Simulated scan of single mutants.
Amino acid sequence: MIIAIVAIISALLGGTASLALVPFFYPEITRIQSGQYTTTADQNAITTTSTVNTTGLTTDTYSYPVVAISKTVGPAVVGIVNFQYSAYGYRFGTKGELAEAASGSGFIIDADKGLVVTNNHVVAGAEKIVVSLADGREVTGEIVGTDERTDLAVVKITADNLTDVALGDSTTLQVGQPVVAIGNPGGEDFARSVTAGVISATNRYLELQGESSFNLIQTDAAINPGNSGGPLVDYSGKVIGINAAKNSETGYEGMGFAIPISDAIPTIQQLIDKGYAVHPGILVSIDDRYTAEYASQQGWPEGAYINAVSVNGPAYKAGIREGDIITKIDGTAVSSSLELSHELFKHNVGDVVTVTYYRDDTTKDVKVTLAELKS
């Protein structure tokens, strides 16, 4: 009996001592419990207290940032369905019936004008576009402009009481930074699904038409078919990327990719202002059947094989001709039309770049002034 009493007293004394020592060894616990933080890092580890458009996202100490982001940004996310006439109807001399050819997501960037940003591959070839809003309304969309080279498009809708997003700065992103993806994976049945993750990497390159023009954001936030065109959002509730692709190879999970919003804005603005986009180019046509294997067999270098040159274009004026192989742009190796565009799109129309090309066992460097390349 005496032993039991002593054990109980010892346990009580030990527990009291432990509680007394918690503030000494783990000061952050007491700061969290009291709602007080001594550093920005402490506060960001628990919650976010930033705002969007001064009246948008605001979270208190004990709320969940993703919930606030969903409530604030979600209403600006739309579903987009691309309808096209069936090939069956065309074979019989009629247009046939409109059928769903593709679907994806988008987000409203200008509520007053009803402007929606999405991917080009979501609306490509559309003969009718239906846009579904967060409140259940469905409206017809009209294409303002598309650009296959950057996989970007702008659609206009006419509706009242729209909500737009706030755009962030993707040039300051850090690996490990938390992000949220919102979109319609699988169509309207899963509209405005919210997934959370982090930025896994920046400056990723994909050998994929459109996306190859950018250094992409990689994220482990789940991105699935139908998420294309939807926003990737930071914890301030601002759009920092446009979800565009994922690694769908067997055995790979959590590898989604987004177009950085800061890189996309110039093209988006051109589509809004002019209905098309202009990019820098050297006005040559590349034959992507020229592979590394074929080059090795011929004893030639890897590169972008030119099968046509625009007469009086910048490459022609610099002495580049059909049959030449472009191997570098400003010292960076290229081996395909997509890699060539990727390097050229880092510049502006009128810039001068150094093009390295191969001809007749000789490599030569020339200066080329970039010309306009319209979408």
Rank of each mutant, 00 (worst) to 15 (best):
V368G: 04
L162F: 02
I3Q: 15
D110A: 03
K274W: 03
I143H: 07
Y305W: 11
A102P: 08
I108M: 01
L283S: 13
F345A: 08
V198E: 00
S336C: 02
Y294G: 04
Y26W: 10
D112P: 05
G299H: 10
L232G: 00
S262H: 06
A318Y: 01
Y357Q: 11
I9N: 13
V198D: 00
D147P: 07
G251N: 02
D42S: 13
D351F: 01
V284N: 05
A99L: 08
V116K: 09
K95I: 08
R91P: 07
S262R: 05
R289N: 14
P178M: 04
A308Q: 14
P231T: 00
E142N: 11
V165D: 00
V239M: 02
I9T: 14
K246M: 15
V123F: 06
D288F: 10
V78F: 03
P225Y: 10
I261P: 01
D147A: 05
I223N: 15
G14P: 02
V155F: 04
P225R: 12
Q43C: 11
A166N: 03
D169Y: 04
G313V: 08
T72K: 11
I129H: 07
N243L: 03
V131P: 05
V179G: 03
I329H: 06
Q270Y: 02
P23F: 00
S86F: 02
I223T: 05
N227R: 12
G183L: 12
N53L: 15
D360W: 08
T118D: 09
K374T: 15
I2L: 13
I268K: 08
T356Q: 13
A11Y: 12
V155H: 02
T49H: 14
A159V: 03
D360F: 09
N119H: 11
A277R: 00
A126M: 08
G256E: 01
E322N: 12
T47Q: 07
S335F: 09
T146H: 07
V284L: 08
Y305E: 10
A371F: 02
I272R: 03
H347Y: 10
D189C: 15
I329T: 04
A196P: 04
A333W: 08
Y88H: 10
N243V: 09
Y64F: 12
